[in-house]
Design a protein around this nucleic acid. Structure first.
Length: 275
DNA sequence: CTCCTGTCCTGCCGGC
DNA sequence: TGCCGGCAGGACAGGA
């Protein structure tokens, strides 16, 4: 589930509780996530504190005092939660447990294990293979310009919806927010990316930003199991205008919404309002 | 380059 | 009630 707004919500929660606090003990219960947690992980992060909490697209970046950063991704089902003290029972799929001097505990939970937790020298992050080809982040206002987006879309002959999911083009957009942003911008998901006009591209960027900002303000979206660092559910799912609403009516024109599989992903849209 | 398919893994839901 | 197939928020490798 976690797209940019859920990652942002997670980061803000982690920062609120754990900023500059010292790590006392690290428990890795399962190393075999999408990529394995480094054997040295425990010794590298113990006795360190987290000095900054950052994000690039859907990636979490936790900078440690010693010049190392934790590069994390929540995959499809990952969550971080902070408990005030070590719980009596850890849950199934609690793969990583970080205990702080304050007694607080950060727990990475991920049933599908599509997420991962990597280490990287902070200074080398921008060249990390996972990050170096990543497109601009739509929320960091300096990154995504109309000019860039227009050029990038010109090169694409495929449909706009699958293109939006390509992290090399734009970072942080997943299936839900791609559907919502296209609806907001009144652009049909099957439109050829290179056929979008300047006005439409501007509208699309604005819509992506607006939907993301609004979702962040709602603490993200909870479909099955996303929750923020304090275990709270997001509530942006109640504000979905098209996602998961097949067989419901368009809020604007009352027509029945459509769902179609594009490049393997369910795509929700209004065939009348989106051109 | 870009685009599409199959794959990783577990849980859940609907149909029979 | 139980079993089975299909599907799910992501991203990668590999091949066309």
């Amino acid at each position: 589930m976690p797209e940019l707004p859920e990652v942002e919500t997670t980061l803000r929660g982690l920062e609120k509780h754990l900023h500059l606090k010292s790590i006392e003990q690290v428990l890795v219960r399962r190393r075999d996530l999408r990529w394995p947690i480094a054997d040295s992980f425990e010794e590298v992060i113990v006795n360190q504190s987290i000095t900054s909490f950052r994000r690039k697209g859907k990636y979490l970046i936790l900078d440690l005092k010693n010049g190392i950063s934790i590069l994390g991704h929540l995959g499809m089902s990952g969550t971080f939660r902070v408990e005030p003290k070590m719980p009596d029972d850890l849950r199934k799929h609690d793969h990583l447990v970080i205990i702080f001097e304050s007694g607080e505990v950060a727990i990475y939970h991920d049933p599908r294990r599509f997420g991962f937790i990597l280490l990287c020298h902070t200074k080398d992050l921008s060249q990390h293979p996972r990050l170096k080809n990543m497109g601009p982040d739509p929320i960091e206002s300096t990154e995504l310009s109309t000019c860039y987006f227009e050029k990038a879309l010109k090169k694409r002959s495929g449909m706009i919806k699958p293109a939006l999911l390509d992290q090399k083009l734009i970072a942080g957009v997943g299936n839900i927010y791609a559907c919502e942003a296209l609806y907001e911008a009144r652009i049909h998901p099957k439109r050829q990316a290179n056929s979008l006009k300047g006005k439409e591209i501007e509208r699309l960027i604005e819509s992506i930003r607006a939907v993301m900002q609004s979702a962040i303000a709602s603490g993200g979206s909870t479909l099955k199991d996303f929750s923020g660092a304090s275990g709270q559910s997001g509530y942006f799912q109640h504000a979905f205008k098209v996602y998961n609403r097949a067989q419901e009516t368009c809020m604007s024109c009352n027509l029945l919404l459509s769902v179609e599989n594009l490049a393997g992903r369910s795509t929700f849209f209004c065939k009348k309002c989106q051109k």
